[in-house]
C-alpha cells in the first residue's frame, strides 16, 4: 500500500478516535480532587465572604461550599449555607436534603430549625413548618424572625379554626400569634422580621381596632419608611375610616383621615384622587378656597385628572359669578 494511502487512512482513524473521545466525554480534563487546593476552612470563609456580599454572589459562594463539603462531608456550616442558597433559588427539596445533613452532623446548629421551617413553609408543609418554628424559638428565643414565623403559623391556624367555626380556638390561637409578634418586636434582632410583625399586628387589629392597627403600622414605617406592604395597608385603613365618616356624614373628619392617608407618602401619584375626594368634601361644605387648593394639588400630581380639572373650572366660574 502506498505511503499516501496509509497517511490518508491514519488521518481518518485519528479523526474518528478524536470524535469518539469527544462523543463519549473521555476528555473530562478537570479532576475533582485536583481542583481542591484550599483547606475546608478556606473554602467556607471564602463562601461566607461571597454569601454575605448578597444574592448576586450566591452562585460563586455555592461553589465554595460545595468544595468544602467535598473535602469534609461533615461540615455543618457549609451544608447550612448551601441550604440557604438552595432556599433562595427555590430548590426546596434540595434545601431540605442539605438541612438533613446539618441535622445529622450538628443537630443544635444555630438557625437550622428556622431555615427548616421556612423551607417547609414555602413547600406548604404546614405541620412540619410549625414544628420547626417551635424548635427554632426554643433554640433562639431572641430571634425576631423565629418568633415572626411562628406567629404567622399561629395566625394560619387561627384562620383554619375560623373556617371551621371554632371561634374560641381561633381567638386563643390568634392571641398566641399576637404574642409571638410582640416577642419578635421585643427581641428586635432583625429589622425585616420586626417590620413584618408590626404589619401582621396591623392586619389583625385592622377591622376591630383600626386606630391600634394604624399605630402598629406607623411603627413599622418608622423602621422602614419604604415598606410598600405596610404603606398599602395603612392607606387602606385610613381609607376605610374616611369612608365610614363619610357614611356618617362627618365629612370634615373624613377629610382629616384622607389627609393622613396622603401624609403617609405625599409624592404618591395615587394621592391625586384622594385630593379630589377632600376637595369634594370642602366644596360641599362651601369651603371653596380650601377646595380650590386641594384640587390644584390633585391637578399638580396628575395633570390628566379630569375630575380635578372640571372642579377647578367650576370653582373659577363660581368665583366669577360671585364677583
Amino acid at each position: 500500500m502506498k505511503i499516501r494511502s496509509i497517511t490518508e487512512l491514519v488521518i481518518l482513524a485519528a479523526f474518528l478516535i478524536s470524535a469518539l473521545v469527544v462523543a463519549t466525554g473521555f476528555n473530562t480534563g478537570d479532576s475533582i480532587e485536583s481542583e481542591l487546593s484550599k483547606s475546608v476552612r478556606g473554602y467556607v470563609q471564602e463562601g461566607n465572604r461571597l454569601f454575605n456580599a448578597g444574592r448576586v454572589n450566591y452562585n460563586k459562594a455555592s461553589i465554595q461550599y460545595w468544595k468544602a463539603i467535598k473535602l469534609d462531608p461533615d461540615n455543618a456550616e457549609a451544608h447550612y449555607k448551601l441550604a440557604s442558597i438552595y432556599y433562595a433559588y427555590v430548590w426546596n427539596h434540595e434545601a431540605l436534603e442539605a438541612l438533613s445533613e446539618v441535622k445529622r452532623v450538628e443537630p443544635s446548629y444555630k438557625g437550622l430549625y428556622l431555615l427548616l421551617g421556612k423551607v417547609h413553609d414555602k413547600m406548604a408543609n404546614a405541620e412540619e413548618a410549625f414544628a420547626a418554628f417551635q424548635k427554632a424559638v426554643e433554640q433562639q428565643p431572641q430571634n425576631s424572625e423565629a418568633h415572626y414565623y411562628l406567629g404567622t403559623m399561629y395566625q394560619q391556624q387561627s384562620m383554619s379554626y375560623l373556617n371551621k367555626d371554632e371561634d374560641e380556638k381561633a381567638v386563643d390561637v390568634l392571641n398566641m400569634s399576637i404574642n409571638e409578634y410582640v416577642k419578635a418586636i421585643e427581641a428586635n434582632s432583625d429589622d425585616t422580621a420586626v417590620v413584618k410583625s408590626h404589619l401582621q399586628l396591623g392586619r389583625i387589629y385592622r377591622n376591630n381596632q383600626p386606630d391600634i392597627a394604624a399605630q402598629k403600622l406607623r411603627k413599622a414605617l418608622d423602621i422602614n419608611p419604604q415598606a410598600m406592604e405596610v404603606i398599602s395597608e395603612l392607606r387602606n385603613i385610613y381609607r376605610i375610616q374616611a369612608e365610614n365618616y363619610e357614611s356618617q356624614r362627618e365629612f370634615l373628619k373624613a377629610a382629616e383621615k384622607y389627609r393622613e392617608m396622603i401624609n403617609i407618602n405625599p409624592g404618591d401619584e395615587r394621592n391625586a384622587d384622594i385630593y379630589v375626594k377632600i376637595g369634594n368634601i370642602y366644596r360641599s361644605n362651601e369651603l371653596y378656597d380650601r377646595a380650590a387648593k386641594v384640587f390644584e394639588k390633585a391637578a399638580e400630581l396628575d395633570p390628566m385628572n379630569f375630575e380635578a380639572f372640571t372642579a377647578l373650572k367650576e370653582l373659577e366660574l363660581l368665583k366669577d359669578t360671585e364677583e
Binding site: 448576586v56 452562585n59 460563586k60
Partner: peptide, 10 residues
C-alpha cells in the same frame, strides 16, 4: 443570566 461580573442563575 446575571450581571457582567456575576452569574445570577443557570
Amino acid at each position: 443570566d446575571g450581571t457582567k461580573q456575576s452569574l445570577y442563575e443557570a
